[in-house]
Design a protein around this nucleic acid. Structure first.
Lengths: 349, 349
DNA sequence: ACGCGTCTCTCCATCGTTGCAGCGAGAATC
DNA sequence: GATTCTCGCTGCAACGATGGAGAGACGCGT
């Protein structure tokens, strides 16, 4: 394996008998290049197998057309879908995406924000999990940044939020409408007060209960620290073992709901006859579970689109039209309840 | 929004009263810097909020510590998991990962390989879907490249394969052992002969039938062009509508299996009593389906680890120890059948 | 013939960093 | 006391590209 030195514009220029700048002009489609010259240059490029060194170009131009995307875990369907949409949208705008999973811990998230990683990109779309509003003092960022989610409610950056409270109010209200009277909620984070999506979803749940005049029973608010399938199964097990027997369950995400439904099924409890279940995320899986899972669709495609739009505005030096009086945007993307078998109405007896 | 010029080493140097090179030395932990000098520099860095410009560093050093990862679709659990592992492994080696979804079409995959994207990275881990061995002539790449999967069987690059044939032979053999006699396989690509994972999996299936002396019925080999859930549901529908009634089904991936099981359930066919089902990928979902899905675990963690190991060897100019006589490695990662409810043995009558 | 504008191309500086050569000062060696 | 060695630091060139200034050629109107 010989040490292969890279072909540069200089080599192409010499081969084609023109200046380096002319090669650059051809590569960048500068219009005032004679056709014959262009042809010579293109031929030389082809013969030498030249390709443009992006690193050099980025350094010279001061930007890279790369945007950073930092999410906790690409294995969670929510984030997998979000990143797929972000990449699609970025491609449409001619930008690359560089990924940085941050899910490990708080320090990793701070590193993503403040490390020299950011000098590689034009801006960052950031969906934090461990950092929260109380960390505001530690967060100083001098590049375009769009924050997704409720963890960091800083009004000095643009943010895109999903309709957590409304989404859960609607889901809970629908269960009530279907006749449920003891509705549990799984995924509560007791230590979070005004950040993270958990309290906002809990708030929607409580609002719906209150609106229907139902009592608010703390025993039905089931904690789950993280939101993977086993945590949902655990939560249901704890709940049932504690003698609590709800007739409806809203889960903070679909993975919790999957785990919950499995545990219910293991105990011979039928969904939706004995308990109706609604999840959150409307992940692709939800329609292929058995029973298929009703879920709140947060509209991630729109979340991705908005995030990119805000970010590109900042990168190009514009103030987004969505910006409020403080100069920063807070966009809330509407969600929508998708009803499937897990919350099907009882058939008439 | 004022135009914010970036703080450079030059600024730090002036502030600290040292040369630019000394700042560089401090930043790069060069040992021969007096403690007092180091302290001055660090203080200046802190005060000015300096951070190292990676683009410049990469240009100067000729490498970036970024590896490219190109997969068809991050929404498929297989690729979501693979990329999660690749990123984990990369982080452990101090490298960043830049993502490039290629799933759209053949041309996009060629662009990934030959576009100037590659000048941003030190090497590429590539899992093609549309390109295949017959495209060999169009593929000339002069940077470190590791190919995952069976589509591109080029012996001029390092490759990591999963144990497709063996995996499917074992899965099928297990169904036979459990008493199945008419076993369907879903996901056949009729146009693929010696590339893509489909024919290799089909081969394993046929081997198992042959070994058991069972006939090979082409009607049981059900095509599915792409491998998402609806395609699995479709395949089952077509099969049953065609009057074919198997007692076992092996699916080329878990998504197909999910769709298949849903369609079976819709038609009142019980898994595993009436039909036993086995998938491929052992995605996290599979254990939370109802019934939980037996699946072949391709060991993606090991696929990711090997890919990175091979790639890093090439980047650092070593020949991998796995390399064969032709100088390139072809590593096959063993898979393992994970049995769950969907292929549970019949209980005694 | 002359000035002027347009087209085509070249040259030089520059982006922010690091490799390399080298220079004093002091310590260690003979 | 002369020589080597190590330490701590500096300055310059270079990585590969692009922006901008401007030079020469050509065509056009007068």
């Amino acid at each position: 394996m010989t040490q292969q030195r890279h072909v540069t514009m200089h080599d192409v220029a010499r081969r084609a008998g023109v200046s380096v700048k002319t090669v650059s002009n051809v590569v960048n489609d500068y219009p005032f290049v004679r056709d014959s010259t262009r042809a010579k240059v293109l031929a030389a490029i082809d013969e030498l197998g030249y390709s443009l060194n992006m690193t050099a170009k980025n350094l010279r131009q001061g930007h890279s057309n790369i945007i950073g995307l930092s999410i906790p875990d690409p294995r969670m369907p929510y984030f997998a879908e979000l990143s797929a949409y972000v990449m699609e949208e970025a491609r449409a705008r001619g930008k690359h995406v560089i990924f940085n999973p941050s899910g490990v811990d708080r320090q990793t998230e701070l590193d993503v924000l403040h490390g020299s990683f950011s000098t590689l990109t034009d801006g960052l779309i950031f969906s934090p999990l461990h950092l929260n509003t109380s960390d505001a003092a530690d967060i100083h960022v001098d590049y375009p940044l769009v924050i997704i989610g409720e963890h960091l409610r800083l009004d000095t950056y643009d943010r895109v939020l999903t309709e957590n409270t409304t989404g859960f109010r609607n889901a809970t209200a629908r269960l009530i409408e279907l006749g449920c009277r003891r509705i549990a909620i799984i995924g509560v984070h007791e230590w979070e007060q005004d950040y993270g999506s958990s309290p906002y979803r809990l708030k929607g749940y409580r609002q719906a209960l209150a609106a229907a005049g139902l009592p608010n029973d703390p025993a039905l608010e089931i904690p789950a620290v993280i939101w993977y399938q086993p945590d949902g199964a655990d939560a249901v097990a704890r709940m049932l073992d504690g003698g609590i027997r709800p007739d409806g369950i809203v889960c903070m995400n679909d993975l919790l709901a999957m785990g919950a439904m499995q545990e219910l099924s293991r105990r011979g409890i039928c969904v939706p006859q004995d308990v109706k279940v609604i999840g959150y995320d409307d992940s692709t899986d939800s329609q292929y579970l058995s029973p298929s899972l009703s879920s709140v669709d947060p509209n991630l495609r729109e979340v991705a689109r908005m995030s990119l739009e805000l970010l590109c505005d900042r990168i190009e030096g514009r103030v987004p039209e969505e910006a409020g009086p403080n100069g920063y945007a807070e966009v809330v993307v509407p969600s929508r309840l998708v009803e499937r078998e897990s919350s099907a109405p009882d058939s008439l007896p």
